[in-house]
Amino acid sequence: MSASNTVYLNLREMTQVHRKDVYVKDVGSVYCSNPVIQSKCRAMKIKSIREDGQHCYIESALDVIAGLEQLDPSIQVNNVGKVEYIIDYHPPKKPIPGWQWAKTVFVCIIGFCGAAFAIMTFNNDVNVTDVFQKVYRLITGEKPQGFTILELSYSVGLAGGILLFFNHFAGWKLNTDPTPLEVEMRLYEENIGKTLIQNDSRKEQEVDVS
């Protein structure tokens, strides 16, 4: 088998598509030292979606490999990606002006109120006010009158600590490491993909949980 006819296939675990005709290039990457074969493989159709609504389809890389080898019997396909992959079909929708901004503002308000409530309940639970009063009295020997430098430094330090922890503020980042939110979102997406694949493999199978 000539090395120029070896095709390397790398399928992503989950791909969101908006067209009913799905091609290899939509769900993964293809490499071949022969550019003609590579273009032919990338343009091969692997699925035609019939449903009109949003739906996830669990597909096998073996079907893609079989299709590529039928397309050109002279090639040999090496799969270096996922064995099972997901096509997440979303019907094309007309963009609604301001809708994305409205969702962003709504999420920011919910996140801000939730974080504020969590911080306040924590402060009340551990009685931070009394702790600051006792610390202030131990250091100065006087009873605090209203808010002190301790409350101010605590508030500033809390806001600064949140910014440092999440490593992201607008377009500014401390370093190139992914933020905790990005890590959690990737883990969430991976768990969704694994769950969909496992649920699909259990269809019409009896599962003994005893």
Rank of each mutant, 00 (worst) to 15 (best):
residue 144 P to S: 09
residue 109 I to W: 13
residue 26 D to W: 01
residue 210 S to T: 07
residue 65 I to T: 07
residue 110 I to W: 07
residue 42 R to E: 14
residue 173 K to V: 05
residue 74 S to P: 02
residue 104 T to M: 15
residue 172 W to T: 05
residue 135 V to Q: 10
residue 122 F to H: 11
residue 97 P to K: 15
residue 28 G to S: 02
residue 185 M to H: 13
residue 194 K to P: 00
residue 62 L to Q: 09
residue 79 N to M: 00
residue 92 P to V: 01
residue 62 L to R: 08
residue 111 G to A: 15
residue 100 Q to K: 14
residue 16 Q to D: 08
residue 36 V to T: 10
residue 117 F to Q: 12
residue 200 D to W: 03
residue 149 I to P: 00
residue 154 Y to R: 14
residue 47 K to Q: 04
residue 195 T to P: 02
residue 175 N to G: 03
residue 88 D to C: 05
residue 206 E to W: 09
residue 120 M to S: 11
residue 192 I to S: 05
residue 25 K to T: 06
residue 12 R to W: 05
residue 107 V to W: 15
residue 137 R to S: 11
residue 142 E to H: 14
residue 73 P to T: 02
residue 143 K to S: 13
residue 123 N to C: 12
residue 37 I to D: 02
residue 173 K to S: 12
residue 39 S to V: 06
residue 108 C to A: 15
residue 135 V to H: 11
residue 205 Q to I: 04
residue 150 L to A: 08
residue 82 K to L: 01
residue 23 Y to M: 06
residue 183 V to H: 09
residue 122 F to Y: 14
residue 164 L to A: 12
residue 99 W to G: 03
residue 27 V to N: 06
residue 179 T to H: 04
residue 196 L to A: 06
residue 80 V to D: 06
residue 152 L to R: 06
residue 113 C to M: 14
residue 205 Q to Y: 08
residue 156 V to G: 02
residue 124 N to L: 05
residue 92 P to R: 05
residue 190 E to P: 02
residue 110 I to A: 11
residue 2 S to F: 10
residue 54 Q to R: 14
residue 111 G to K: 14
residue 160 G to Y: 07
residue 10 N to C: 05
residue 164 L to G: 03
residue 175 N to A: 03
residue 11 L to C: 03
residue 187 L to I: 11
residue 68 L to V: 04
residue 67 G to A: 00
residue 69 E to I: 02
residue 128 V to T: 11
residue 143 K to Y: 09
residue 24 V to D: 01
